[in-house]
Design a protein around this nucleic acid. Structure first.
Lengths: 207, 207, 207, 207
DNA sequence: CATGAATGAGGGTTCATTCAT
DNA sequence: AATGAATGAACCCTCATTCAT
């Protein structure tokens, strides 16, 4: 995995995010990366293997962050939720293209191997959040809530922001081409919104 | 728009939902609908026009329900939110294929015309919910919250359930092929979860 | 199987005979037949299926002749051998391209389906000749000989004439491009040679 | 021409015999020989040159044997025919891969240079046998027969056994993978059959 | 001397669409 | 009104070969 590999993966990532896997041709990728078409097969074997390599490439990063988060033993459950929201929102918005690709691929059937890989990763994230909430419930600070859908809400809200970007750009009057502006604004809004909502949702009310 | 048109649209809907727009060939659609390949071009002009026709076909239905909801003047803001959640969850889960297609299409660029159409519809839904929340805030029963992201949460949570179905089937141990079982279970869970969460999120706490 | 099918098959036959299966591209065939490249897939599904169709097309003819031969009950075993040589030499030299293709395909592995088909046909021919010789042996006019290799000799000699045509053209000083001249000369020579040789080989000597 | 050259040639020989020239890729050869892909071009210049080198490599061996045979002046014409059959059958069956390649290449056009080379070699063999038969005819022990086709029969019968191996394995119930078994059985059968048949064919009958 | 990296050309196949009937 | 036949364009991939190191 050298720099050229990464360069191709990043070109592919952008195109996959914009036009989907099937909407992107190997020629497009080669063109965007400035390499010969045959190079893609030479490096990755096939278009599908390139996709798998992309997932591996980006997931490394993800896994590291999640593990780091999980190992911190000094925090209260709510601290952890807040930290998780911060990290998670940052991570996803900074890799919004990749997350859009994952969501797109998960929704459509395509290759089983790829889908299994994505499910595995997402299921891992699920487990992490689940643990934190369960800990809070054991310590009697979190309510009993629908675990799967609460996590679905966190993921779904962030996913919504990445996959319906064009909608939000219109609603919030952000230039559709201003990647940075969108990311910065949304990072802040998401952090605040999710924390506020989850606090109300999770915390036992002290009447 | 005769019965044969509708039959083709419904076959296309299923395939688009399963394999995406680009992953579905006109041959596939013709095969599934049991009509001649040339028929699709003959009826709809092009594959893209078929997609637009599909959106129009399904959106009619959607718009009707939303307008009906909006016109009911007898309900409190929270009643409306609850009713909206019920209707919305039902509507989306019963048309999950179509919603998945919309989400997929919104995420990828594809044709501008189609994207604009989808944004227009989604923006309409946004406006509806916004009005209800604003009304609740005017009546001092709802808190000040991030309007766009609260609505994003509602939509995103439901979207999550439709687009990550294979993930949820795994987590909840539902047979991936049991469409009905998934829909019924998720309808209930979503209604309960969203109401509980939005109640905590929206309502001003009476200490 | 209309005229266009046959036209493509005959173009393919010539090219396969000249350059082999792998040496001939679908584009070559389409070009030679004067049809669109996509036509080959449209008509035959794949290049390999085209080969199978070609074998079927030519074998129909073969089977008819062999059955006709087999049903004639008026002839002595040696009459039958002579008749068989005549018919067989004619048939192969008039379809020398096809027979060359069969031999080429049988020698290399390629597709199992195709090879099995060819073996089946050749094995059928084997059985026919075997029956005639056995009948002659029962009637005490033919010697005990190596059945498989005697038939191999008949087939091999004819095959040699079709597959090593360029060698024979050189040896016999025939213009390599004079298809008709080669066929006529060789038909005569083969008939005479095989009959003379088999007579000496098969017939019990009356001392 | 060092050991590595020979190693590559032998790997190529096996693959060419199995899958034909066009059916074998340079990658396949490099893989089978355990060398770098670029090595083939580096050593032989091109795939076609490799083929020529292979023919040269194997033909050396062939020519030696044939010359040795030709120089033995102590034998009767029929002794020579018998010896020639023995040597020839052995030689071809022990190099059946190579002979199959030659036949394949002779049948298809491919490169003129290669075909000319093969014709030259085969024509040489022809001349050798021709000389022996002519000698027998001069001594009045051999009949007048079709010289070209009699030789064609010898070559064709052996060629048949090498090129239609899968057919004979089926007919004689030999395991297709048992190279040694096939070679041994066929060597014996061919020697006996060809001698018996040629004796009847060539010898003047003493009534 | 040997090779990993890279490439232009071409491979077979499928695509959405058109058109004569 | 409906369709079978046909097509140009594009698909992903593999080919034999080259070249800098």
């Amino acid at each position: 995995m050298n720099d050229k590999h990464k360069h191709i993966l990043e070109a592919a990532e952008q195109l996959f995010a914009e036009k989907g896997f099937n909407g992107t041709s190997v020629r497009d990728i080669a063109g965007a990366a400035g390499v010969n078409i045959a190079m893609i097969s030479y490096y990755f074997g096939s278009k599908e293997n390139l996709m798998i390599a992309l997932i591996d490439y980006r997931s490394e990063y993800t896994r590291d962050i999640l593990e780091e988060m999980n190992n911190n033993k000094m925090l209260t459950p709510w601290d952890k939720i807040e930290k998780l929201i911060d990290l998670y929102v940052d991570k996803i918005l900074n890799n919004y293209r990749f997350y859009r690709i994952m969501t797109l691929h998960l929704a459509t059937s395509q290759s089983d191997e790829i889908r299994e890989k994505i499910i595995e990763i997402k299921a891992g994230n699920f487990e992490l959040i689940k643990k934190i909430i369960l800990e809070g419930q054991r310590k009697n600070v979190f309510r009993k809530i629908d675990m799967e859908l609460t996590i679905g809400t966190v993921m779904g809200t962030i996913a919504q922001v990445t996959s319906s970007r064009s909608l939000y750009c219109k609603l919030l009057k952000i230039d559709i081409k201003d990647d940075d502006g969108y990311r910065k604004k949304m990072t802040l809004k998401l952090r605040t919104h999710l924390k506020q909502m989850l606090k109300a949702h999770l915390h036992i009310q002290n009447t």
